[in-house]
Amino acid sequence: MMDFPKILMIIGGVLLLVGFFMQFIGKLPGDIVFKKGNTTVYFPIITSIVISIILSVLFSFFGRMK
Score class of each variant (00 low, 15 high):
1 M>G: 04
1 M>D: 03
1 M>V: 06
1 M>W: 04
1 M>T: 05
1 M>K: 07
2 M>F: 05
2 M>R: 04
2 M>W: 03
3 D>W: 07
6 K>D: 06
6 K>Y: 11
8 L>K: 12
8 L>A: 09
8 L>G: 03
8 L>V: 06
11 I>E: 00
11 I>P: 00
12 G>F: 13
13 G>V: 08
13 G>E: 06
14 V>L: 15
14 V>W: 10
14 V>R: 08
14 V>F: 15
15 L>Y: 09
15 L>Q: 05
16 L>F: 13
16 L>R: 04
17 L>P: 00
17 L>T: 07
17 L>R: 04
17 L>H: 04
18 V>G: 10
18 V>Y: 15
19 G>Q: 01
19 G>K: 01
20 F>N: 06
20 F>W: 13
21 F>L: 05
21 F>E: 01
22 M>H: 07
23 Q>E: 07
24 F>E: 01
24 F>G: 01
24 F>Y: 11
26 G>D: 07
27 K>M: 14
28 L>G: 03
28 L>N: 06
29 P>C: 04
30 G>F: 11
30 G>I: 09
30 G>K: 09
32 I>C: 01
32 I>F: 12
33 V>K: 12
34 F>N: 02
34 F>Q: 02
34 F>M: 05
35 K>R: 15
35 K>L: 15
38 N>P: 11
39 T>H: 04
39 T>L: 11
39 T>D: 05
40 T>Q: 13
40 T>K: 12
40 T>Y: 09
41 V>P: 00
43 F>S: 05
43 F>L: 15
43 F>T: 03
44 P>M: 07
45 I>F: 13
45 I>Q: 03
45 I>V: 14
45 I>S: 03
46 I>W: 09
46 I>K: 10
46 I>V: 13
47 T>F: 09
47 T>L: 06
48 S>G: 13
50 V>E: 03
50 V>M: 12
50 V>W: 10
50 V>G: 03
51 I>P: 01
51 I>S: 08
51 I>K: 10
51 I>R: 07
52 S>V: 06
52 S>F: 12
53 I>M: 08
55 L>I: 14
55 L>V: 15
55 L>H: 06
55 L>S: 11
56 S>N: 10
57 V>I: 11
57 V>C: 02
57 V>L: 08
57 V>G: 01
59 F>L: 15
60 S>W: 12
60 S>L: 11
61 F>P: 00
61 F>E: 03
62 F>I: 11
63 G>T: 11
63 G>C: 09
64 R>I: 12
65 M>R: 08
65 M>H: 02
66 K>W: 10
